[in-house]
Structure formats: structure tokens, C-alpha cells
């Protein structure tokens, strides 16, 4: 048993690198996912994942399959879309869901167009789905940097994020920090999706962000606990996904996300606030 779980990581450097990559990624993108979910922006993560495609594709078009230009490109595209959508929602009557949809759809079309200018569909597959088993030093350094920066920003802005989620109008009445918190947070979303796309691709990196968060919601009613739990679920599903991928020769990205998906379904059913618990306690009540 232990052999099945440990040997792949002991024997193969690429497995160790992959593990380090997804653990670092889980530590930062899972708490970001918790706040996205609590702000009812779960699908915004998905939109942003699409939005970074043209930037990554431009980097790819100009420099080939190289991590740094593709990351910087993705970052620029993501920030542009986040700022554009955020500005439209704050300055006009349109709400953020609509402006975000408009911006990311345009961005996605541009991205597909750019990729088709050069690459074959294999290249497109790589950009869309990543390759966690081929993380080089550059990619790992980048992910580590993103992880540390994200955790630092989350700790600094924690109180502001809570206030902006819980009662934005109140925050506006006591402080002008609300918009800053919102945009920095959107920046963190982009940063973590970009960090994840080398490992999991632009489309699946949002899965590692949202699924552990969505699962953690069924276990606790405290935000801090929820973030820690999401990280734990993220790390566990990443490890499980890598092992499944190794033993059954499955593609690693989907194996990781599906492991998180399994945790999500188990949480819906058996979580502290899950279906079974609610059914069992429905007919019991106290006198006051």
C-alpha cells in the first residue's frame, strides 16, 4: 500500500516536481476560490480562465512553447479583462456578471484566432489542458512566487475582503478601500489561473480553484476554517490525482480535477451541512 502511494514520488523526479507544483498551487488558489465562491463569482473564475487565453497564445505565437512569455501574456490579458469588466460594472448600470461575460467571450475568440494563426491542434491542447508532469525549474519558481505573493496579499487584505463580501455598502461608508480590495482580488484570481495553466491548462486550473472551495463549504461556517479546509482538500486531490494518473496512465490534469470532484460529491452527501446530516436531524428539535 505504502509502496503504491510513495514509490512514484521517490523514484521519479518528474513526479516530485509535479507534486510540489500542485501543492504550492493548492495553497494559494484554493483560498482564492473560497472568496470567489462566497462572493458568488464562482463562474467568474471560469470566465477569467478563458480570458487569459489570448495573452498566453500571443506569447506562444511569438516565443513558442515557453513558460515565461506565455505567463506574462496571460497575466496581461487577464488583468485587462478583469479591469475592463470591473470598471464597466462600477461605472455603468451593467452588473459584473454581464460585463465579465462580454469581455471574456471577446478575449476567448481573440485567443483561439491567435493560436490558429500558428499552432497545430496539439499546441492548442497543451495551452488548454497543460502538462503537470513536465514542470521545469522556471515553472516551479513561478508557481512558488505566485503562491507566496497570493498568501501574503490574502493575509494583508483579509479584513477588507471579509467586509467587502459581507457588507460592501458599509465598507464604502467607512473606507475607500473597497475598489482596491476588489481589483487586487481579481488580480489574485488571474495570477493563480496563470500559475495553474502550465500545470493544468487554462481550462482545468479553475477546477483546482473552485472544487475544493465548493466542497469545503459543506463542512464549516467559518471563513478561515473554510480556507484551510479547501487547501487540505486541494492538496489531497492533487496527490490522489497524480497517483491515479501514474498507476492507470491517465492524463494528470483531469485526474486531479476529478479527484477534487469526488471530494465535492462526498461533501454534498456527508458534509457537516450536507444532505444526509440535514435529513437525519430534520425531525429533531429543541424547545428553544
Amino acid at each position: 500500500m505504502i509502496e503504491l502511494l510513495v514509490t512514484p514520488f521517490v523514484e521519479f523526479a518528474f513526479m516530485r516536481r509535479a507534486l510540489l507544483g500542485v501543492v504550492l498551487l493548492s495553497m494559494s488558489s484554493c483560498p482564492v476560490g473560497v472568496f470567489l465562491m462566497l462572493r458568488r463569482m464562482s463562474l467568474a473564475g471560469d470566465a477569467m480562465a478563458h480570458a487569459i487565453l489570448p495573452g498566453a497564445a500571443t506569447g506562444f505565437l511569438l516565443f513558442g512553447l515557453a513558460i515565461v512569455p506565455m505567463t506574462i501574456g496571460g497575466l496581461i490579458a487577464g488583468v485587462l479583462v478583469a479591469l475592463g469588466a470591473g470598471a464597466v460594472s462600477r461605472l455603468t448600470v451593467q452588473k459584473e456578471d454581464a460585463s465579465m461575460a462580454a469581455f471574456y467571450l471577446i478575449s476567448l475568440a481573440v485567443g483561439v484566432l491567435i493560436v490558429s494563426l500558428r499552432g497545430s491542434s496539439v499546441d492548442l491542447m497543451h495551452v488548454l489542458f497543460g502538462s503537470v508532469l513536465a514542470l521545469n525549474d522556471e515553472a516551479l519558481t513561478l508557481i512558488a512566487g505566485i503562491s507566496i505573493a497570493t498568501l501574503a496579499a490574502l493575509l494583508l487584505l483579509w479584513r477588507g475582503l471579509i467586509a467587502e463580501c459581507l457588507d460592501p455598502l458599509f465598507l464604502r461608508s467607512v473606507s475607500g478601500i473597497g475598489p482596491l480590495v476588489h481589483f487586487v482580488f481579481l488580480g489574485l484570481v488571474v495570477l493563480n489561473l496563470v500559475g495553474g495553466f502550465q500545470a493544468l491548462g487554462t481550462l482545468l486550473s479553475v477546477g483546482l480553484m473552485m472544487l475544493p472551495a465548493a466542497a469545503a463549504r459543506f463542512w464549516t461556517a467559518r471563513v478561515d476554517t473554510m480556507c484551510l479546509l479547501a487547501v487540505a482538500i486541494g492538496i489531497a486531490s492533487s496527490t490522489a490525482g497524480l497517483l491515479l494518473s501514474y498507476h492507470f496512465t491517465l492524463p494528470s490534469g483531469p485526474a486531479i480535477i476529478l479527484s477534487a470532484g469526488l471530494v465535492y460529491f462526498v461533501s454534498i452527501l456527508f458534509g457537516a451541512r450536507g444532505i444526509v446530516r440535514v435529513l437525519l436531524t430534520r425531525h429533531r428539535h429543541r424547545t428553544a
Partner: peptide
């Protein structure tokens, strides 16, 4: 009309 999100885990 407060903008309090009553479903927020607080």
C-alpha cells in the same frame, strides 16, 4: 436597504 449578504458565513 443594506447590501448585507446574509448567506455569508459570518
Amino acid at each position: 436597504q443594506s447590501e448585507i449578504d446574509r448567506s455569508f458565513p459570518a
